[in-house]
Design a binder for these strands. Structure first.
Lengths: 128, 128
DNA sequence: CGGTATCCTTCGAGATACTG
DNA sequence: CAGTATCTCGAAGGATACCG
């Protein structure tokens, strides 16, 4: 499962060994980047994240944090207080990811309006 | 629908006006980036792309190309020969996107192995 | 050659209820 | 507080057949 250039040379994989699929597809989900950028500011707790990211369900916050922990982007620390307190913090890997995603995000912010206009004009022309 | 920092300041939207969701979520799908990088090398035809991107179905190639055309990343040109020839080519916007995605992709390639190891160790520890 | 149209399965993700 | 367990629904995407 590979993509090739015109000379037939493999350019990258798309299976489970593919860096793109393993990184981009993972953080391309609905919530990962939002969580990533919340945690860039510093460690935060479960319910604080939940309230900062409007619209996320408890289930998806838990699941996305677990996936990010599994990938090594996030470290989870439990403080055995009563009631229990759990903090999530970016690892060095997570900070590196955030930094490298930032270029794409700022490009998106810069070009968002042009993209929106392109969609509008495309949708208008395909009405007739 | 916004994410906020700890002071309650909005940091970005997650609804239809959100640059991140509108760009990252779109190209975070299963095929967009693969197509994007195939077209970075130059214009290409439908069936050529189909054979270069192993595993993609005709349906998904069409659909993803249409979405990319709608966003303004790709320009579609029909040559009324017999049989018909259709070429897809990156626009300036598409080239800009490719360039800004490249940073993330190369980060992914660099750190892919570390991520893989993190997953392995996470999965081992959660077995017991 | 370059598509559409249709069917069908899988998976992401919201809602809700319960727990240490 | 910080989760887990189910249920459910809609969208994503593969397979297949047909078309200009």
């Amino acid at each position: 499962m590979v993509a090739k250039n015109k000379q037939g040379k493999r350019i990258f994989l798309q299976n489970e060994d593919c860096p793109i699929r393993n990184v981009v597809a993972q953080i391309g989900d609905k919530w990962s980047i939002l969580i990533l950028f919340c945690l860039v500011e510093g460690p935060d707790r479960f319910n604080s994240l939940k309230s900062r990211i409007e619209g996320i369900s408890q289930r998806m916050l838990t699941q996305t944090l677990r996936d990010m922990e599994r990938d090594g982007y996030v470290e989870r620390t439990v403080y055995p207080e009563v009631p229990v307190k759990v903090e999530y913090e970016l690892t060095a890997l997570g900070k590196g990811l955030a930094k490298s995603v930032w270029g794409l995000v700022s490009w998106a912010e810069t070009n968002h309006e042009e993209i929106r206009k392109s969609r509008q004009s495309y949708d208008q022309n395909s009405q007739g």
